[in-house]
Write a protein that binds this DNA or RNA. Sequence first.
DNA 1: ATAATAGTTCTTTTT
DNA 2: GAACTATTAT
Length: 809
Amino acid sequence: MTLFTDDRHWDDVHDAPRAASIDPRLLEGLNPQQREAVEYRGRALLIVAGAGSGKTSVLTRRIAGLLSSGEAWPSQILAITFTNKAAGEMRERIEQLVGGASEGMWISTFHSACVRILRRQAEALGMREAFTIYDSADSKALMKRLIRDLDLTSLGFTPGGTLSRISRLKNELTDVEAFARTVDSSDPRETAFLKLYREYTHALRRANALDFDDIISETVYLFRAFPEVAAQYQRRFRHVLVDEYQDTNHAQYALIRELVRPVPAEIADVVEERQGWTRGIRAADGSIPGASLTVVGDSDQSIYAFRGADIRNIIEFEQDFPESHTILLEQNYRSTQHILDAANGVISHNFDRKDKRLFTTAGAGERIVGYTGYSGHDEAQFVADEISAVVRAGTPYSEIAVFVRTNAQTRPLEEVFIREGIPYRLVGGTRFYERAEVKDAFAYLTLVVNPDDDLALRRIINVPKRGIGDATVAAIQAQADRQGVPLREVLREPRELGLGPKATAALAELSALLDEGARLAVDRPPHEVLVHLIEGSGLRASLASSGDPQDEARVENLDELVSQAKEFRIQYPEATVVDYLTSVALFAAADELDEDGAGKVTIMTLHTAKGLEFDVVFITGVEEDLLPHRMSVMEPGGIAEERRLFYVGITRARRRLFLSLATSRAAYGDVSIAMPSRFLSEIPAHLIEWRTDPSGGPAAAGTARRPRAIGGGFGGRSSGGRWGDQSDAGSYRPTERPRVKTEWTTPVSSIRDNGDLKLAVGDRIRHTDFGDGTVVSVIENGPRTVAEVEFESRGKKRLLVKVAPIEKL
DNA sequence: ATAATAGTTCTTTTT
DNA sequence: GAACTATTAT
């Protein structure tokens, strides 16, 4: 069998747009566009896939088609997904379709693929194979020290701000030296920043470490600096497929370009010599043609601009790859028409986009339900009540999701869910691997395989407490600087530091522990090394004996960590400590979805919700300052991105969609007034049924005030009908903007204003929903004065006096 | 060296 | 309301 069926699709795209013989079963049930996306053969293919248009299915079938037709070996395929979980699922589905045999196929995230390449080629970059991957917290800790050491706090440098600028530079492939050339040396702030960038880069290098952004950019540099290394991969991967292309940044884009670049004849000769055969894929002139590229994306779902994602990558694809072909998938197989109308209504307010309208044949479905609560708690109660109702009606918990804009919003939801006995799982948030004790354990493990990592050593040198303070660390650092060695090296001869006997002994003991760990790491599985370090260091024991109940939880976390490491061992029997650390470092929030979600409601941010779908979806906190988030309002394009985020949330829903907000929200310490999101006005009014009290209690009747204002303020805008405002599809007219604004004042001013109503402890009040109650306490704070009221029927509530629907009795 | 205390500041989203 | 910092006492 010939492995590489034909070169003709390189040379003559137009004559050979289709695969010779795709298994007809792979095309079953596909619409014409989807079919074409599976069958098309050519140099470059862009699949513009609207939400819910079956793109995952198309992508997997496309790969399965390449394999089953004999056009490609598994090892010639590189598929990039957004999460590790998505990668695993795709592999599984392909295996099902072609019946096993996916070995050698690379299906992974950008980061996983690059780490794999970088570990293999580490020495070319002057690194060691066991380099550490720094997460954002590690980078931050390092940057913090650099700013302090260089005494730059006064110039207004913060770790976060400096790092995000460095991150942006790295995503644009601007390394320190390239940046240095652009710096205005008369500007002290700029030179200081350059200094930080340089020091940060050196520190990483010395520590044999890379940060998240380096993983991509260093791979690009590697390919550019060593064409014969690049050629190895260019030769190998004949078909490159990228999912979620709209969220790639410039560095990722450059990486793809490198990967699908043709190999010139003379380099192909070198590869032939070193790696063996290339004859089957050489063109007439001896070069190896570039791989075929398939990208799938939807610019309306681009929500990662903040980390450098460049929407232009998808918009300009046709210019970048002139021989490319584009296929549009617009038919939605997920949601009801009402949900799609809402989604279309919202997204059509983004100008400067290719018009695209999702449609379905699934029918109108139920209306969207809206709710305005008084507080985040009230809102959470609504969500809980509706979940109970939906579950009673037959929807399993696992088909229900609650989305939030920020992780802080999950707290009231959790509290209410626990009280109501609603089973839930939280995806993302403060992640397990980010807990201090877990990171401590990993620092030990890291140090064992990468002794150059000074940051890891600093982290655990006095954890658990072994009497090593700042002074001792400074002495060690000074010695390391003198000798030009990493800190770990100095610990081998602690006596030379001239410290007290206690500190000297403690350092010698730590050094011995790390040596023993390194010995074990050679041939023992990761979890055994981990246990040895956790026990041997006294990390676990010191927490277990502290008596602090919080430390008990920490011990449990360490135990959980060990059992997870054991599971990892079962899944990957051959894995080394480095493999284990890599998998943890690249573990994403969405990967947690693998874990048991059966019988549980899922709570997560809108960002992690991308790519998922649920029967019933709640989007909470649909308020100004939250969605769109206040931080985004100032950024150029920020509102548009928030709108896409909302759009992503809406389009996750299959059957039911609930939108909720609150008129006041607790924000660290005090409470602030919240206003309905401008995005609500972009949904045709007739699609939303506003509710107040979800339990339909007696209070519901007279209190349509706020919700009606929100829904009703826009009644005139869309004239109704099944298609909503679809008639003016895409013909966004800037002149409409002021009109929207004027209308918007209605719901905003309709928020109740009690003026400067004064309450005192002991006052009796009446609340429209909660009934009568007594003021228990008042926290005076001007317009944000909060009163705590004990209600006869509903218990204790905290109310924002200015806006609460109350009257003094 | 460390533990406790008081005061400060900050909060978007994530590989 | 948490997480970090500076200051104090042991």
